[in-house]
């Protein structure tokens, strides 16, 4: 197993933008999207996030796995919510409605009713989830992991916390290698992950021969690392960072745009009380 990040330079405009501005954009969009259930407003967000996705030049091949994962998961949830349980959705916005078909449920003497409204609501859910997903799915592929620490430092996180991120990234390849060595070592002792029929408890216990050595080895290494850091004065005073970020005009434009979206969204929702569930034919 090789633990690799998906990041590679895509030569897109997106990568020229300061990562801090991109995080601000992503979060402003997230908080705006979740305010609304109005298909018309959500479509605007959907278009913006899709534009970002295509501008990023991230390929289908790279994100296939993630998309399938998210679509399958949300489809199951939406299916169950629409067909089976979803009676009380968002404070009962769509209680009642136009029946599409109904099914008499034996024994209970009630009718199961699937309404047109429920289907429109399911579509709205998809739109929201896909917008949020395309907002965040591209991040790992377009953001240099080297910049995470300094980015969060720049967003106001304390030195030590920001450095923890850099340090965690430093350990990833080492731990991945150690895991491989341990896996080989245990296999050479006849260990097989999937050995015949086992119940779930035995299956989990079977992870111990892999997890214990890797974890304990890392903890033992941790002490040396902490010494090495103390000897080089870590955490004794405010540190400087050689990776540095500069906001450029474009970054300010993006941040301004993000804040504008959030402010407008908040005003629409709470000032004008707009944005509840909407479907064609509703006023």
């Amino acid at each position: 197993m090789i633990a690799n990040f998906g990041y590679r330079p895509h030569q897109s405009i997106l990568e020229k933008i300061d990562p801090r501005a991109r995080w601000i954009f992503a979060f402003c969009m997230l908080f705006s999207i979740v305010l609304f259930w109005d298909l018309r407003i959500l479509s605007v967000f959907f278009v913006i996030t899709l534009i970002q996705f295509f501008v990023s030049k991230v390929t289908w091949q790279e994100t296939k796995r993630a998309w399938i994962f998210i679509l399958v998961l949300s489809s199951i949830m939406i299916f169950i919510n629409t067909i089976i349980t979803g009676v009380e959705t968002v404070g009962g916005t769509i209680r009642g409605g136009t029946p599409l078909f109904s099914l008499k449920i034996p024994l209970f003497e009630t009718f199961y009713v699937l309404t047109v409204e429920r289907l429109w609501f399911a579509l709205t859910q998809y739109l929201r989830i896909i917008s949020i997903a395309s907002l965040f799915i591209i991040l790992p592929f377009t953001m240099d992991p080297r910049l995470y620490g300094v980015t969060f430092k720049g967003l106001g996180f304390p030195d030590k916390l920001a450095y923890t991120m850099d340090l965690a990234f430093r350990f990833i390849p080492t731990i991945a290698r150690d895991f491989n060595v341990t896996l080989d070592a245990q296999r050479a002792r006849g260990f097989e992950i999937d050995k015949g029929k086992m119940n779930i408890f035995q299956r989990i216990r079977r992870m111990a021969p892999l997890m214990v050595p890797v974890t304990m080895n890392s903890i033992l290494a941790g002490e040396d690392i902490a010494n090495a850091m103390d000897l080089r004065c870590f955490g004794l005073k405010k540190r400087s960072w050689i990776e540095n970020l500069h906001f450029k005009t474009g970054d300010f434009v993006l941040i301004g745009f993000s804040i504008l979206i959030l402010v407008v969204s908040l005003y629409l929702r709470f000032g004008l009380n707009l944005g509840d569930f909407w479907m064609p034919g509703m006023s």
Binding site: R232, C233, N244
Partner: peptide, 10 residues
């Protein structure tokens, strides 16, 4: 790393 911790200018 060490110089960053000492706060030496970039």
């Amino acid at each position: 790393f060490g110089l960053e911790n000492l706060g030496v200018p970039r």
